[in-house]
Amino acid sequence: MQVAAVNAHARKRYGEFVQALDFAFEQLGELKKMIDKMRPRTRVQGAWRNATPDELKGMYKKACADLEALRAHAMQYESELISRDWRV
């Protein structure tokens, strides 16, 4: 009985993790829309330095790649748990 409770808890935590990944991808999609609307500006000496749209696009691609790698690793871990029937 204790193993079933632990397995249910593990499934719940994994589900929350997957939902958090999905939410992060949704937010990055909104960010991509904003980056696409940006236009480069000339920088005034001594003013605040903001990232250019090209720099932001690079950061966006890196964040997406990192999240994809995390998702792939999570999927690999999920299949391992399913193959073991989520036993602890």
Score class of each variant (00 low, 15 high):
I35N: 04
F17R: 02
Y14E: 05
Q27A: 06
P53Q: 14
A63R: 05
W86C: 00
R43M: 03
S79C: 10
M34S: 08
T42M: 10
Q2F: 14
V88S: 04
L31Q: 05
R87S: 01
E26Y: 09
A8C: 10
R41P: 14
Y14R: 01
C64G: 07
D85N: 07
Y60M: 07
N50K: 15
M59N: 08
D22L: 04
S79H: 11
R11H: 11
A51Q: 07
A8F: 09
E80S: 05
Y60H: 14
G46Y: 08
R43T: 07
T52I: 12
G58D: 14
G46R: 06
F23V: 00
L67C: 11
M34W: 02
L67M: 12
S79N: 06
S79Q: 05
A24D: 10
C64F: 09
T52K: 12
H9F: 08
A24W: 06
V88C: 12
A8M: 09
F17S: 07
E16S: 00
S83Y: 02
A10S: 05
M59E: 15
I82L: 01
Q76K: 01
K37Y: 05
G58I: 09
M59P: 06
E16W: 07
D22I: 01
S83V: 11
A74C: 00
L56N: 10
N7A: 10
W48L: 12
T42L: 08
F17E: 13
A10V: 04
R84K: 09
Q19N: 12
M1P: 14
V18R: 08
E26F: 08
F25T: 00
A8Q: 12
E68L: 02
R84Q: 06
L21P: 04
A10I: 03
D22P: 01
A65W: 10
S79P: 00
S79A: 09
A74M: 04
N50M: 09
R13Y: 06
F23E: 06
W48M: 15
V44C: 14
M1S: 14
P40K: 05
A51C: 13
K62P: 06
K62N: 13
M34H: 09
Y77W: 01
D36G: 12
T42H: 02
Q2C: 14
N50Y: 13
K33Q: 14
E78N: 03
H9M: 03
H9V: 03
L21F: 03
G58V: 10
R13G: 05
D54Y: 11
V6F: 05
A51R: 15
R39D: 10
R71M: 03
A24R: 02
H73L: 00
M34A: 06
Y14W: 03
V44P: 15
R49C: 11
S83E: 04
G15M: 02
W48I: 15
Y60R: 11
M34D: 05
H73E: 01
D54W: 15
Q76Y: 02
K37M: 09
M59F: 15
G58S: 13
V6H: 14
E55V: 12
